[in-house]
Nucleic acid binder design. Structure first.
Lengths: 113, 113
DNA sequence: TTTCGTAGTCACTTTTTCGTAACTATACCA
DNA sequence: TGGTATAGTTACGAAAAAGTGACTACGAAA
């Protein structure tokens, strides 16, 4: 899912940037406020530590989120939306709304957001 | 990537519905006009026949596209957007625009749409 | 009778992604 | 000296997704 430098269709890049099982969800939990690693881990149901770090790394290297280390003891690390991330928020909301509509019309339960 | 009937977050359902490497791209090529299987195959670069049929089946079972068989010889099958698919079009365009902007600012080449 | 074209299916392999559990570094605190 | 907390890393294996190539059915045309 690493970003390449040429694509035949922009949606291929879209998928590499924010596709995958977890990225949209990670971004979702960063919309309201920046969060530390542990907070994200608690917020996102069922994500493993390994996958969370992997996905955060990819989002960071795509400049969609930022990572800031605070030299506390123990260290804390804060993840936040960058400008790219912010510009994505309306689209995420739209996707979310579309999906909620779909779910309600098809008797699919969504227990969280 | 099959759709379940309960989710903790709507974006999980989003991903099951239109995530994956190919679904957005398939939908993209159906936005302008409905297409036959072979036309889709030719339109979408590098997709294998197997994966195309699989993804079309999933999109059909999610009611995002429709499949119509014409009893010609040999049979032809036409795929088209349903109402759900249509309602997704503006979001696809937005994603596409966002991505093109991203690509242009990061020197990523997109040779097609 | 063989070949052609459409729209697949099937068996198999490779690649990618995901999950689990154990391990690390750091420094404070008891 | 051992325990605690944060934010990871690492090795390993399982599962899911994707790719490959051969195969099918149908009837029309050569």
């Amino acid at each position: 899912m690493a970003v390449k430098n040429n694509y035949v269709c922009s949606l291929g890049l879209t998928i590499d940037l924010i596709g995958g099982k977890w990225k949209l969800m990670i971004l979702w939990y960063l919309i309201e406020e920046s969060k530390r690693f542990g907070e994200l881990k608690k917020s996102i149901p069922n994500i493993s530590q390994k996958v969370l770090t992997e996905q955060l790394k990819e989002l960071e290297s795509s400049q969609i989120i930022s990572r800031k280390v605070y030299p506390t003891v123990p260290v804390t690390v804060e993840y936040a939306m960058t400008a790219y991330g912010e510009s994505l928020i309306p689209l995420i909301h739209d996707l979310c709304d579309w999906t909620k509509q779909y779910a309600s019309e098809n008797d699919i339960e969504i227990s969280g957001d």
